[in-house]
Simulated scan of single mutants.
Amino acid sequence: MDKVIEKISDIESAATSIMDRANERKTAFAKDMERRTAAFDHDLETKTSKKIEALRRDMEIEMNHQLEKQRNDWLKLQTALEAHYEEHHHQYVENLFQTMIKE
Rank of each mutant, 00 (worst) to 15 (best):
A80V: 13
D20K: 06
T27A: 13
A54W: 07
L75Q: 15
N23W: 13
E82L: 05
I52E: 05
A30Q: 10
L81R: 10
H65Y: 06
R56G: 10
L81A: 13
E60S: 01
M59H: 10
A38C: 03
H84M: 06
K31E: 11
H84A: 11
E87R: 06
E34D: 12
F29A: 13
L44A: 14
E53R: 14
E62K: 02
E86G: 00
R36P: 00
D41S: 12
R36T: 02
A28P: 00
N64E: 07
E34F: 02
A30D: 12
L77N: 05
T99S: 15
W74R: 01
Q78V: 06
M33W: 06
D58Q: 05
T79M: 01
Q91E: 15
E86R: 05
K47R: 05
L96H: 09
E68F: 02
Y85H: 15
K76E: 04
T79F: 01
D32A: 12
W74K: 04
I101P: 01
E53Y: 02
E45K: 10
M63V: 03
Q91L: 13
K51V: 09
S49W: 05
Q70N: 09
M100R: 07
K69I: 09
A80I: 12
R21V: 11
M59W: 08
E53S: 15
I52V: 09
K69A: 13
H89K: 07
A83P: 07
T27M: 11
T79S: 04
T37H: 09
K102V: 14
T79Q: 03
N23H: 14
H65P: 00
Q78I: 01
R35V: 11
D32N: 13
R35G: 03
Q91K: 14
D43F: 12
F29Y: 11
V93A: 13
D43V: 09
T99W: 08
I101W: 10
F97R: 15
Q91C: 07
N64M: 12
R56V: 02
L55I: 08
L75F: 13
A30P: 00
T27H: 12
M19H: 09
N72V: 08
T46W: 02
D32F: 09
H65K: 13
L67E: 09
H42I: 02
L96P: 03
H84W: 01
H88G: 01
H88Y: 08
R36E: 03
A28V: 07
E94M: 05
A28M: 07
A39N: 04
N72K: 15
Y92S: 01
N64P: 03
